[in-house]
Amino acid sequence: MNSMLSIKDLRASIEDKEILKGITLEVKEGEVHAIMGPNGSGKSTLASLVAGKELADVTGGSITYLGKNLFDLNPEERSKAGIFLGFQYPTEIPGVTMVNFLKTALNEHRKHKGLEPLSAKDFLKLLREKKDMVEIDSKLTNRSVNAGFSGGEKKKNEIFQMAMLEPKLAILDETDSGLDIDALKIVANGVNKLKRKDNATIIITHYQRLLDYIIPDYVHVLFDGRIVKSGGKELALKLEEKGYEWIRNQVNGN
């Protein structure tokens, strides 16, 4: 398998506080990785660094994506190169309709691939197709991006956008939080349907429940800015059962 994302000894600080303390992670095409870990351990910070948010200052290490130094690419270039971040807290953009937003984004992706913009008709067809796939309320696409969406609707909207953009590497940051059981299945279904041999998914979650539907190849535990444990899907079960106490003890050498 080809390497997709290769993170090596990544260190990052926010306001002089070290948040990521040397992260190493290797994701290959076709793989599903889950990242779990207590609140504040740095999961979202890691995800946002991959997407290109200038929140944390990188103080060391590297991120390579499909052989390229990711730090050379700005967020829009990363997106067009196939990286997708499903936000933990999707942003509301009042006044910008979903349709307009998606059309602009999609056509930027097409332009990047040397394709013509989609015709209005083809765009609407695609929109409908993907809406059905993630079972998102039809009216949502006529509204402003995330504005006034319920918590669950915002999360579904992230999956909907992912379905529209068909990324190579999707990072879903707690997309399962706040979803009802049905919505959770729909989201998982969406992810599974979009799964291909040449793409990869990183799922950040607190609950093993989602991993019943999306079977991960690897589970990592991010603890205080470090990946302190990696394993198969049984690791998620163990965490669900025992919490993080035993990890904390191991890290602290007790």
Partner: peptide, 29 residues
């Protein structure tokens, strides 16, 4: 809004375009 700009950029919309979209939305009211 910087968060909104990043959100749009993370979907592939160039920064300049994202700024325009936001200004336009602002003016549209």
């Amino acid at each position: 809004d910087g968060e909104a700009l990043f959100y749009m950029r993370s979907r592939g919309i160039p920064e300049k375009e994202a700024r325009l979209i936001m200004m336009f939305a602002f003016a549209h009211e």
